[in-house]
Design a binder for these strands. Structure first.
Lengths: 227, 227
DNA sequence: CAAGGAAATAATTTCGAAAACTGCGCCCCT
DNA sequence: AGGGGCGCAGTTTTCGAAATTATTTCCTTG
C-alpha cells in the first residue's frame, strides 16, 4: 500500500473499516461490481457512515473501488482485459525494480531475500483457509518474499506501486477458482528466481520473474470467470 | 491521477475541496509540512468538515498529504532526497512507457503528439501568473504534451502512475524560485523529444526524455529551498 | 399502448454537535 | 530539583439527522 500513513497510537474506525473492506475485496468476498450501499456496510462492519466514507475514498484512490459522484461506490469491476494490463504493467515495473535491486543490493539485501524465501518455503499454502490479511499467512509471506527481491531498488515510490499491483493481481487470483494451482510448483519458481537474483544474473532473474507472473495470469484467465 | 472516478453529473463538495486542495498544495500555496487543521480549512474553502476529510483522505492515498491517526493531516514534507527519488522513478517509468508507445503507436498517436506539441509551442509559459489548474494554461498543455508521448503504451495503469509522478515533481518545481528557468530552452527540448519519438528512435527519445527530467531536477535542487 | 412527467421513495452527501483523543502545563510528591 | 500523574484546552474523529440528489412508480396524455 502506498498509504502515506504513520500508524501511530490507537487505530481509528476509519482505518479499521479500510482494512476490512480491502481484505474483503481482495479476498473476493465482495464481488467485482457490487454496489456498496452505506446502510449495508454499516450493518456488515458495525461502523458509522463517516468512517466508512473515509475508507471508501481511500480505496477509490488505489483503484479498489469506483466512485461516482452522487451515486456512491461499488467494488471495481474485474475483466480479462484489465488483468492482462495489470500483469503487463507489473512485469515492466518489477523488472525495473529487480534489475536495480540486483545492481545495488548489499549483503543485508541478500540475507533478506534468503530469509524471506526460507520462511515462505516452510509454510504450506493450502493450510490457510479463506484469504485474510494477517501476519504469517502464506499470502503475507509470499508478499514479503517478492518485496524482498525488489527492496534494494532505492525507490520507495516504485515499491509502493509494485505493492499496489501485487494487491490488485492478488484480487484476481482470489476471484478465480484456484483449482488449477495445485499442480504448479510455485516453490521451485520462487527458488530459481532467488538463485538468479543472488547470483546477480539480472537477465535471468528478470525473465524468470516475468514468466512467473505470466503463468499466474494465464492460469487465472483460464480458470477465471471474468467478462 | 489514478482516481477511479467517473465524473458524472453535478460535482460534490468533497471533489471541489479535493481539487482546490490539490491545486494549493501543488501550486506551493500550502507549504510542505503545514499542519492542515480542519477549522482553518473550513474557513479557507468554505466547506464543511465531512467533505474536507474525504478530500484529505483521497490526497493521502496519492501522497500529497500525510495522515497520522488521531493527529490529523499535514502537507507532505518535501526534501532533496525525495525529489531525487521522484525523478529517478519517473525516468524509469516514463522510459518504459515511451519505448512501448514508440513501438506500438499508430497514426493517431503521431497526430496526438504533433498537436500537443503545437499547442504547447504557441503558449508562452510566463504569461501565466500563479499556478492554477485550468484548461489551457501552460502547465495544462505541458502535462498534455508529455502524456501524449506515452499515451500509446497500452497501460492506463502505467499512465496513471506517470501522471502521479508528474504532479509530484510539479509541486517541487512550484516550490523552487523558478528564477533559473528563464535561460532554459525548454521548447527545444520538447521538440527534439518529439522528433525522436516520431522518428521511432526509441533509444534517442528515451535518453532525451531522461535528460529533460534530470535537468529540471538539478535546477530545482540548485535553486530550491529544501532540507 | 407508448411516452412523458410529476410525486414518492431510496440513496448519497453534508452539516452540527457530541465523544474521544492528544498535548501541555500545573501541581504535588519524593 | 526532578519526575509522574491529573486535568484542561484544542483538535480530531464519530454520530445522528437534515438536505440534496438519484431512482422508481404511477398517472396522465398524445
Amino acid at each position: 500500500m502506498p498509504s502515506a500513513t504513520a500508524t501511530n497510537g490507537r487505530e481509528t474506525l476509519a482505518s479499521i473499516a479500510y482494512q476490512r473492506l480491502l481484505d474483503d475485496i481482495v479476498g473476493g468476498r465482495l464481488q467485482p461490481g457490487t454496489k456498496l450501499r452505506l446502510q449495508f456496510l454499516t450493518e456488515r462492519y458495525e461502523v458509522g457512515n463517516s468512517p466508512l466514507r473515509e475508507a471508501l475514498n481511500r480505496l477509490s484512490a488505489i483503484g479498489m473501488v469506483q466512485r461516482e459522484e452522487n451515486r456512491g461506490f461499488r467494488v471495481s469491476p474485474a475483466s480479462a482485459d484489465e488483468l492482462s494490463e495489470l500483469i503487463r504493467t507489473r512485469c515492466w515495473l518489477e523488472e525495473t525494480a529487480l534489475r536495480e535491486s540486483i545492481r545495488r543490493g548489499d549483503a543485508a539485501w541478500e540475507e533478506g531475500v534468503l530469509v524471506a524465501y526460507h520462511r515462505l518455503s516452510k509454510r504450506n499454502r493450502y493450510s490457510d483457509e479463506q484469504y485474510v490479511r494477517f501476519d504469517g499467512t502464506w499470502e503475507d509471506l509470499h508478499r514479503a518474499y517478492h518485496l524482498s527481491l525488489l527492496s534494494a531498488c532505492n525507490s520507495s515510490i516504485l515499491l509502493g506501486f509494485c505493492t499496489q499491483l501485487h494487491e490488485q493481481t492478488l484480487r484476481y487470483r482470489n476471484l478465480s477458482s484456484m483449482q488449477d494451482y495445485r499442480d504448479r510448483h510455485e516453490l521451485d519458481e520462487h527458488r530459481t528466481i532467488r538463485d538468479a537474483a543472488l547470483d546477480r544474473d539480472a537477465d535471468a532473474a528478470a525473465e524468470l520473474l516475468r514468466a512467473h507472473y505470466r503463468v499466474t495470469g494465464e492460469i487465472v484467465l483460464a480458470s477465471g470467470n471474468l467478462s
